[in-house]
Structure formats: structure tokens, C-alpha cells
Design a protein around this nucleic acid. Sequence first.
RNA 1: GGAGGGGUGGCCGAGCGGUCAAUGGCAGCAGACUGUAAAUCUGCCGACGAAAGUCUACGUAAGUUCAAAUCUUACCCCCUCCA
Length: 316
Amino acid sequence: MNNVIDTIVIAGPTATGKTRLSLHTAAFLKKEHGLDAEIINADSIQLYKDLKILTAHPSFSEMEGIVHHLFGILDPNDSSDVAFWEHSAKSIIKNLRTQHKIAIICGGTGFYIRTITDGIAPIPEIPQNVRRKIREEFSRLDRDKFLEKLAELDPYMAQRLHKNDTQRILRAYEVVFLTGKSLSEWWRMKREESQHNIMTFFLSPDRGQLRELCHLRAQKMLNSGARDELMDFMARYPDYRGPLSKAIGYTELILFIAGKITETECIDAITTKTRQYAKRQYTWCRHQLSNAQVIKGTGYDESITYSLHEAIFLSV
RNA sequence: GGAGGGGUGGCCGAGCGGUCAAUGGCAGCAGACUGUAAAUCUGCCGACGAAAGUCUACGUAAGUUCAAAUCUUACCCCCUCCA
């Protein structure tokens, strides 16, 4: 209906202060422009309601007075995926629009964020039993055999995917198997949506700074009770193997709880994992979020906050 | 003091006469990425070089051999067990 910015995206590597920046931005919009803004989570792991310390949820005091969406909405055994997030986020954005509120999308899952501007292919959902059967077949057959089967149904994808990339091979297979159409054909059907009312920022601190932030984050996590939180979780979900178990720090903390590593070793291991993750996110954002404005610095930096607000001010 | 085991590239750890600049793993660097994305996967990784290649390397020194990380001797340092 117009070209005025009504959606602000704050992306970037973990530990760079995205949460803080989004909170400040919401406060700024209210104070300076009398605009209400609500925050939408774009972090795949913060979708879950448990392990809030480990997954770095904003605290209650931080969230004060600002409406937050899509935080802690899933149980540990629920599964999430891009399409689920896209649908949820877009319906919230639409809603906010009708109320003349600004949506601030904040999170580190670039893959999710990209759907805001680029959308996603309209592939039907694959029923659980089909997925299970395919997985069983994969583990029964050897890898090359399975790839041959894929090649029969979908030579293009079979050739394009690396043979060790199990996850993508399985996906390509389940899609052709169920729909009779190659993933690549589905991709071509993706609707292009041209959005002029979205402003995307991408936080990009320098390496040394990021290193330090990752370390601080790991330390803070332990100091705020991540260990007890996980012990409590383990008691409630014995033998848990769901999506939350891939959270950074999950395995490391379990080793620490079991007395296999010291606290310092645990913090160091988490720091390393965090840094590696941050690198992947950085590479992703740089190459995939093509029309994002790069902000050299962190959300903890006052001058960054200021210049971001200035940029928003000019478009809002 | 006696008896053994060991010292390998940033770390861990294989190799035990040639095919070894040295399997693996970790860490590091770069990258991919269309419904599991805090996931999944790829490449590089002694120095110099675009490459062919050249050089320096397996605790130190000396030796045996056409050839040594691999065998011998001495020395230095670690660890375990017995006293």
C-alpha cells in the first residue's frame, strides 16, 4: 500500500548484541516517533520454550513493555522448519501492519530471515511416515545405492548434491518421491515478492571483537545457571534427543555435569563452537542477504545504535 | 638406586628402513547453503612458489646404510612401577 518502512530486520552473527539493538530500536521508535514496535524472533532455537539460558533468550526485564513474538512457542519435541517460521512471521507482520505497528525481526537464522524478502517454494508438506520410511531405507542401503535410486528419480539433484550431504540427499529424495517433481522444479516456482517496505541490517563486528564476545557469552551462560537449567531439563526429559540437543553448549555442558571436563574447559569448548557458528552466520549473511545494510560494529556500541536509528528515522 | 615406557607438524596421535612433508582427529582459514539451518556439507592447512619444484623438518649430537621419523651409541627431558 505504500513504500514506508514497516519492517526492520536485525541480522548477524551470534553474540553481537542483536537483542539489545532491537530492544533499543523499539524504545527509540516509541519515544521519538510515537510508533509501537513489536519484536519477532528469527532464531530457530529460541523458538523453544526450554533451556532459555543456554539459548540466550532475552530476559523478562529486558523484554519490558515490548511485545515479543515467536519466543518459546515450541515444546522440546516439536520440530520447526523454515516454512513454519515463514508462515508464522508473515502473519504476525501482516497483523502489525493493519495496526500501524512496526515489526522488528531479530535473530541469527539467516535461512529463516531470507524468506521474508525472497519467499520460499510452495512444496507440500511431507508426511511423517513417508519421511521415516525413507530414512529407514537410507540406513538399510549403502550410500551409493541410495544415490543411484535418487538419480533414477531426479538425476539433476543427484548430480548436484555432494554425496556426503545426507540431509540434503534425503530431502531431495522425499520431495521427488512424494510429489513426482524434482526439488529444482519446485524451486523455480518460488514466487518473487518485491518488498519495498523492509529494511535489513546486518551486524558485522571485527574478528577480534567477535572472539571476545563469544567468550563473554559462554562465561555469562555458565554464570547465570545454564548448568542447573540443563540438569533440570535432563530430569524432565531423560534420553532427550530432540532439536534442542543441537544447541551450542548442550553437549559441552553434559560433559561438564558428568565431570568429564572442568568448568574452564567447558567454557572454552563452548566459546569455540560459538565462534565457528558465528563464522558460518557471517558467511551466510554476507553472501545471501544481498540487500542488507552492513553495520560494522555491535549492538553494544552506542554509536552503532545511533546511526541505525538515524537510518530508520529517514525511512519510517 | 633398580626395572620398564616414551619424546613426531599449533595440540592430540599413528607410522617403526625406501612408495613420508609424514594416516587420523582437533584447532585454524576459506566456501556452499531453497522445508532439520545453533543443522548439513566442501576445500585448504611446514616454508617459499601460480605451478613444476626447492628448502627445512619427527628431543639433541654422532654413527650404520645407496636410503633413517623408523637401526646403533651417547646425552638431555618426561612418565610408570619396584626400592
